[in-house]
Amino acid sequence: MSHSIPSGSRWRWYIVFFVAPATLIYTVFAIYPIVESLRLSLFAERDAVEAFVGIDNYKKLFTEPYWADQFWNAFKNNVWLFVLHMLIQNPVALALAAILSIPNLRGAATYRTIFFLPTLLSVVVIGFIWQLILSPLWGITPAFMNFMGVGKFFAPWLGLESSALTAVTLISIWQYVGIPMMLFYAALLNIPEETLEAARIDGLNGWSIFWKVKLPLILPTLGLVGILTYIGNFTASFDLIYTLQGGLAGPNGSTDVMGTFMFRTFFGFQAQLGDVNMGATVASSLFFIILIGVSVYLFGVQRRLQRYQA
């Protein structure tokens, strides 16, 4: 589309007009803060003056028990969050999308609308709703479980160290299953009818068409959903955990994730004072963790998938 205007030596102001506003806002309020955070992570306050300390903050974060314990605990919890989303959210989303994409399914539009509804609501609202529903005080969950004959398995899951993180994760899955579902759904709808027809003529039944034809064709979407889950898990999980378990991510730090850890480090809580440089160090570590994930996706997963496609 760039054929129309010969690129002369004349300064074309309209290009500046189109490109500059977005570039400016994006640079000042997205890129600069991230770069500045990376810089801040290399400095520390010494006698009320900012001094360059190299990678000392990172050393502190990874080796001093006070910091390292929190960091690795949050990291471990984030990994568990990611694993559960990959093992439960994405397969459920794929199953729902596969069912919804059956041609001429009655009521497909209504089901789709309902399944996507929780995704639209604020995490804060969803968090509180489930907190009430799971509350032993209200007793609606134990009553329901009694009705199903499994009442003796009820426990105040959100309040127990052993189960709080998993309970929070399941709430998050319940809310966000709609996004991968829509991505899978769109990918499944984009498979050409001829391809499926050919498979049917070859005598494949619905089940094997799904596994042998559809699934390989939507592999790139699986990769995309994977990386989106990875990024979201490290950053977006803050909202739900802060709402449900508070800034300390209790009980006893069992639901602490990188987001809540970063928030506490930066702003401080109770006896601990906020620390700008350590906050920036946690954020920057998270930056590198995400960078590693994205690189694996771009250079490993996606490239292999494209080769598979071709």
């Binding site: 991230i34 770069v35 801040l40 803050f238 987001g259 906050g279 920036a280 995400i290």
Partner: peptide
Amino acid sequence: VPIRLGTVA
């Protein structure tokens, strides 16, 4: 790269 990472700055 989530913009939240730049919150401090």
